[in-house]
Design a binder for these strands. Structure first.
Length: 448
RNA sequence: GCGACCGUAGCUCAGUUGGUUAGAGCACCGGAUUGUGAUUCCGGACGUCGCGGGUUCGAGUCCCGUCGGUCGCCCCA
């Protein structure tokens, strides 16, 4: 045929065939259940927004990282959403003072970023967003972290495999100030901290000097950043290990106490190297990492008081986090927490697989299937013409059906043979009561 | 935006210094046989060698470009 072309998926996007889709749904279902169980309500917004919504938050520099577009002949600039927080802030702002506080929302939207794909980073991905509006520090943060930890736990992870690494802008600022960082250099110093583990030691020192720190201060800063502490450590001991005064860590203590009451301490680490984007986060910031240190952050979040008023709403406090599906899937795979068959075993299992061994039986097959389906059962049949029972059962087995319904000469008397594919047992059942019989057996099975 | 490596049936790969009509194993489809997820047998579809140029008598093989993939850098909301 002339005029045909072949196509590849665009760079950094994924096709979800049934097994991959089953894995995605598995993760999304855990996210959704954990959110709901923690009292969050689901929202969604548009896949694209006015470009300005993103530049007003992140600056013009963000545009090169976005998929932005203008309708042919139009004059408005739009962008596919690279994150959900601006949409959420806009939605909260639009409700104005009618928004009941606190408001706890979650969403599982797709996001788009015009970046070069690499391990843990794609151009389209799914991200679970959990946000609390109208709760101050540290209550909002702990609500968010609690939901994240619940989901990770349900996915099979534990505090030995993942840790919530927390920091506090005020504590780190106090540390930097005590080391002699001039006030105007603080943002640059945060940036330096953020790059700590990516810079060679001498380069770190050189940049520290440029910020007005002497050699002794740089050494102390390095020591503080390296001194990652379990959140379960008493604040006094933590301060000592970091070489700071207890007063400089004062902003951590309420958080620590609140995490203790929620039983989350063992999941959490204090890590002054956690900085996150400077654009709008303040106060507590955190990332969730697998403890091996091989993968990128599984999740990140913090407090963004001021963003809602920035997009025209009331001055509301807010905090939240985002957890992407890409890194999370890598971590789950690394830890053997996803099926080795890449999702086949997560596909929905048919309750019944009907096969016909004669022309008369084949004529009855559609009505038998319809009866089962109307009763709410997942029923399939083979699409092959063969009357070879061995091959037909192989089909039933391949899609992991629970029961085979064998239609043969017995259909003349209204009877079928039901074979339990797990045990191999089989028995004759009246076709009229097939759906009830199978439903009863499945109910009994799930009750065990 | 920059760099490295990679691209041959659905999958895993083979394919000699460029040389007939590009192969294998799984998987797949149809059928026969044995009425029970199996075995055996017969048959089928299997690929514009990512795509496009170039060099050559001749390109899966060499060169250039491009599109994808993988992994780094930048960035990471």
């Amino acid at each position: 045929m002339s005029g045909t072309r072949s196509f590849q998926a665009p760079k950094g996007t994924r096709d979800f065939y049934p097994p991959q889709m089953a894995v995605r749904r598995h993760i999304e279902e855990v996210w959704r259940r954990a959110s709901i169980d923690c009292g969050f309500e689901e929202i969604d917004g548009p896949t694209f927004e006015h470009l300005d919504l993103y530049t007003v938050k992140s600056g013009e520099g963000i545009v090169s990282e976005l998929f932005s577009f203008r309708r042919a002949g139009g004059e408005d600039d739009y962008a596919l959403r690279p994150e959900f927080t601006p949409t959420l802030a806009r939605m909260a702002a639009a409700k104005g003072s009618s928004l009941a506080l606190p408001t706890k929302w979650f969403a599982i939207p797709s996001h788009f970023r015009a970046e070069r794909p690499q391990r843990g980073r794609l151009r389209e991905f799914f991200q679970w967003n959990v946000d609390v509006i109208g709760l101050g520090e540290p209550d909002g943060e702990v609500e968010v972290i609690e939901a994240a930890v619940l989901a990770l736990e349900r996915l099979g992870l534990d505090p030995h495999r993942v840790q919530v690494r927390l920091s506090h802008r005020d504590a780190v600022a106090a540390l930097l100030t005590s080391l002699g960082t001039p006030e105007p250099s603080l943002p640059a110093a945060f940036e330096l901290l953020d790059r700590f583990d990516r810079l060679p030691p001498d380069e770190f020192a050189r940049r520290g000097e440029a910020l007005g720190l002497d050699a002794d201060s740089i050494a102390r800063l390095r020591a503080s950043v390296v001194a990652v502490q379990p959140m379960s450590e008493p604040a006094g001991a933590m301060a000592e290990a970091m070489g700071v005064t207890a007063a400089q860590l004062a902003s951590i203590e309420p958080l620590q106490e609140r995490l203790r009451r929620s039983g989350l301490l063992e999941w959490c680490t204090f890590d002054p190297g956690i900085v996150r984007g400077l654009a709008y986060y303040k106060g507590i910031v955190f990332e969730i990492h697998e403890t091996g240190g091989a993968e990128r952050a599984v999740a990140g979040g913090g407090r963004y008081d001021g963003l809602i008023s920035l997009v025209g709403g009331p001055d509301l406090s807010a905090c939240g986090m985002g957890m992407g599906d890409v890194v999370l899937s890598l971590v789950l795979r690394d830890r053997g927490l996803l099926p080795a068959d890449e999702g086949e075993s997560l596909l929905p299992r048919p309750d019944a697989f009907a096969v016909a061994l004669s022309d008369d039986a084949a004529a009855r097959l559609p009505s038998v299937l319809q009866g089962l389906r109307r009763a709410g059962l997942h029923a399939r049949s083979s699409h092959r013409a063969s009357r070879n029972l061995g091959k037909l059962l192989a089909d039933a087995n391949k899609c992991r059906a629970r029961f085979a319904v064998i239609l043969d000469a017995g259909v003349a008397e209204g009877s079928a043979t039901v074979k339990d594919l797990a045990s191999g047992e089989q028995s004759d059942v009246a076709i009229a009561s097939l759906a009830d019989e199978l439903a009863a057996r499945i109910a009994a099975e799930s009750a065990r």
